[in-house]
Design a protein around this nucleic acid. Structure first.
Length: 291
DNA sequence: AATGATCTCAACCGCGAGCAG
DNA sequence: GCTGCTCGCGGTTGAGATCAT
């Protein structure tokens, strides 16, 4: 890719993972747990850098990762969360059990930003393009494909027309405070502690409603809402948030994306927007994510 | 069927934060 | 407080897949 490697990788494999490498990594982690990424490849017999191992595990090999088939509800939630959080993919992924931030980021860049654009909404600001001085042209962080000639087929934009119509009947959203991106860590965990030491407590506690946690303002707010997403580097275990892997087999009944849970989440979000103090509350909400 | 254009997404990168010494 | 190491995040890349002509 043209850039110098971040560390010495002489003799290391790069590019797509082979089934054998996947097996080696999976078996190693199953018997030794996560963590120690730097030394892991050597111990596992892999000619990969630690970063690559971690990425592969977090995004593809972990149990309970959902692949593809992003539902309209998830679609909707991603857009809503993006309007609130911006490009904080790990936080957004933390709200979508089983999804990784890399997947959501890709999905946003390849599908959702186009969809919003085709609907006359600036995907960066979530304002109507006609009302947005930027007109969706000022961009740096946007999908590079935006600069490309778009195909006339707009299949990716119309998976569920009714669904999107509903969204755009929403009242005009006030400006949402988007805090500067920052690393989010809600509580410390010793680096060499395996996640098994802390993740189970969340499942046992069965924290389900993140908005209650948010309103609560106690540890749970940071602990849960700070969704160190699934992501290519998801850090749920650090934050004690609940996501797909933490849900384990319970995820389907805790946050089934097909039922009205997502709607409930958004309804509560809308309630915030309706109030006069919504800006203050949203600021507080956004900041709570960064605690 | 061939070819070029465009899209998708797995994987890579640099940066910055947290932690230990 | 400083330094070095490790990890996590978000942006970017490019090979392969898909589409249009």
């Amino acid at each position: 890719m043209g850039r110098a490697p971040c560390c010495s990788k002489v003799g290391l494999h790069r590019g797509p993972w082979t089934p054998r490498e996947d097996t080696l990594l999976t078996k190693y982690i199953q018997s030794h747990g996560e963590g120690h990424w730097r030394s892991m490849p050597k111990k596992a017999g892999l000619l990969r850098c630690g970063k690559s191992c971690r990425l592969r595990w977090m995004n593809y090999l972990r149990p309970n990762i959902k692949r593809g088939n992003i539902s309209p509800d998830e679609d909707d939630l991603i857009i809503r969360l993006h309007s609130l959080l911006g490009n904080r993919w790990s936080l957004i992924a933390g709200r979508l059990p089983g999804r990784t931030d890399n997947e959501i980021k890709n999905y946003w860049n390849t599908h959702l930003s186009k969809k919003l654009r085709s609907q006359g909404t600036n995907p960066n600001t979530h304002k109507k393009l006609s009302e947005d001085p930027a007109q969706g042209l000022k961009r740096k962080n946007n999908n590079k494909s935006n600069g490309r000639k778009q195909k006339s087929k707009s299949t990716t934009t119309t998976a569920n027309p009714d669904h999107h119509r509903r969204r755009h009947h929403q009242p005009e959203k006030p400006k949402v405070h988007l805090p500067k991106p920052t690393r989010v860590t809600s509580f410390s965990m010793r680096r060499n502690e395996s996640f098994e030491h802390c993740n189970t407590s969340n499942v046992e506690n069965n924290i389900i409603n993140p908005w209650c946690e948010f309103k609560d303002g106690e540890n749970g707010a940071a602990g849960f809402l700070v969704g160190g997403g699934g992501g290519d580097d998801h850090q749920d275990h650090d934050h004690g948030i609940v996501n797909g892997s933490d849900f384990d087999c319970q995820s389907d009944h805790i946050i089934p994306t097909g039922d009205n849970t997502l709607e409930k989440l958004y309804e509560e979000y809308l309630e915030l927007l309706k109030t006069e103090e919504s800006q203050v509350e949203l600021d507080a909400f956004a900041e709570s994510l960064l605690i």
